[in-house]
C-alpha cells in the first residue's frame, strides 16, 4: 500500500530549516513535544488515529523520525505504524508549505469545471499533487469531496473551504495569502 516513505515527493525537502513563521502556525518538532502529544492520548481506546492527527496538526506532517517513538509508545512495530500512516491519504510524511491547498477532484466539482481549475492551480503554483511550490508558500493535495457540492467547484486552504472557485478567484486568493504571509515575517 501507498508510496515508499523515503521517496522525495516535494520540490522543497528541507523546509524544516525555514523559519516557523512561514509555516503558518506549525511548530518545529522535537522528540519531547511528540511524546507530549502521545502521552496525552495514548490511554484512549483506539488511540492511534487521534495521535497521528495530533502530531500532524501540530507539526504540519508526521516526520519519519517520529515513527519509532510512536511505535514504542503504542507497543507496535515500526512497520505497523508505517502501514497505518501510509493507508490514510490525509497523513503525510513530508513537510508542507505555509498553506496546504486541497483541490476537490470528485464528481460534483468535475461537473462544474474542476479539471480546468485543477490544472490552472497546478501550473500557477508550479506544483503537482503532494508537491510544494518553489517559494514554499503552497502545498497541493487532492481531496475527494468537501461536502460543498452545491456550490462547486471547491477547494480547501487550511481549514477554510472556498466555494464557486474559478481560476481568477484563485489567483486573487493566492495573491492575498502570499502577501499576508510576508507581513507575518
Amino acid at each position: 500500500m501507498g508510496v515508499p516513505m523515503s521517496v522525495p515527493k516535494t520540490s522543497a525537502q528541507n523546509i524544516t530549516s525555514i523559519s516557523p513563521a512561514i509555516r503558518a502556525g506549525f511548530e518545529d518538532w522535537t522528540p519531547a513535544l511528540v511524546k507530549q502529544e502521545i502521552d496525552a492520548l495514548k490511554d484512549k481506546p483506539g488511540a492511534m488515529l487521534p495521535i497521528l492527527h495530533a502530531i500532524q496538526d501540530r507539526f504540519g506532517y508526521i516526520p519519519e523520525a517520529t515513527v519509532p517513538i510512536i511505535a514504542e509508545a503504542m507497543r507496535q512495530t515500526r512497520a505497523e505504524v508505517h502501514g497505518i500512516i501510509s493507508f490514510y491519504h490525509h497523513f503525510r510524511t513530508h513537510p508542507v508549505g505555509a498553506h496546504v491547498i486541497h483541490i476537490c477532484r470528485a464528481e460534483a466539482c468535475q461537473s462544474m469545471g474542476s479539471r480546468q481549475l485543477e490544472s490552472h492551480i497546478k501550473s500557477r503554483l508550479g506544483a503537482d499533487y503532494h508537491q510544494t511550490s518553489r517559494d514554499n508558500e503552497f502545498t497541493v493535495e487532492p481531496v475527494y469531496c468537501l461536502g460543498n457540492c452545491a456550490c462547486a467547484p471547491s477547494i480547501r486552504i487550511g481549514d477554510d473551504i472556498h466555494g464557486r472557485m474559478s481560476p481568477d478567484k484563485f489567483d486573487r486568493l493566492a495573491d492575498r495569502l502570499t502577501t499576508s504571509t510576508l507581513e507575518l515575517k
Binding site: A106, E107, Y144, C145, G147, N148, A150
Partner: peptide
C-alpha cells in the same frame, strides 16, 4: 464519513 460526492446532509 459521508464520502459520496454530491452529499452534505450529514454535514
Amino acid at each position: 464519513d459521508e464520502g459520496d460526492s454530491g452529499t452534505f446532509a450529514d454535514r
